[in-house]
Design a protein around this nucleic acid. Structure first.
Lengths: 114, 114
DNA sequence: GGCAAAAGAAACGCTTGCGTAACGATCGTC
DNA sequence: GACGATCGTTACGCAAGCGTTTCTTTTGCC
């Protein structure tokens, strides 16, 4: 079920959503952090630092720092993998789900307005 | 011509675009910077620091700093307003237009894949 | 038991961003 | 020509991000 957008619509959608998200929420995530957050919530677990680093094409410390920041914002959580204690499993949180739910609503509503 | 998206489609679109943009381009703009950039390119000029600050609901130094950064990336340019020399007019650049054109293509292509 | 490999975190020096407050330049008006 | 208002920038102290390198813990294999 593809979504067909004109060039103008595509950018206007991005514009409207970015603008409204900035106005509504003071948490100013970088594009990288946003990509990590969405990856965690939209792709089936488990998620590890190493896996996310590979998926995004960035180094591991980038992921560790992003998780530090988003963790302190309550958007994600970290748990040691008990089966292999070298790994850390990144967990979703209620607040993170809520954050993305609001973002989804924003995208839908701004899409309708185009 | 509204764009109707399901909640799943909306977030998957955001996910795919963010992820691909991170992989393709090392310039990691914040959501604020992205909103500023799109505002400049999609809304008719003139654009001033004061106007952008009001539109985004942030302070003026936030705009100044974002323009510093995006200016050094070549995405925007600044020119003194000769009619009222207190003002600064923010100008578009070829590189900025190219950046957004690529972003638009990305959105369109990822939308089609949904 | 010993040891290389792997995962994630921490350390380092640096850059960028923040909010608040102060500043210099310019304007309009008196 | 003086003066309050406006515009954008700069300064300040601090938090967060970067890439690279190093460290700690744990694993798997001999």
């Amino acid at each position: 079920m593809p979504v067909e957008l004109t060039p103008s619509q595509a950018l206007r959608l991005w514009h409207a959503v970015s603008l409204e998200q900035v106005r509504v929420d003071s948490r100013d995530l970088t594009l990288r952090q946003m990509a990590i957050l969405l990856q965690i919530y939209l792709v089936p677990p488990p998620h590890t630092v190493r896996g996310l680093a590979a998926t995004l094409g960035v180094t591991k410390p980038v992921i560790t720092r992003a998780l530090d920041t988003m963790g302190s914002l309550g958007l994600v959580d970290r748990v040691r993998d008990e089966r292999d204690r070298r790994n850390v499993i990144i967990k979703r949180t209620v607040e993170g789900a809520l954050y993305l739910e609001k973002l989804g609503d924003l995208i839908i509503n701004q899409g309708r307005k185009l």
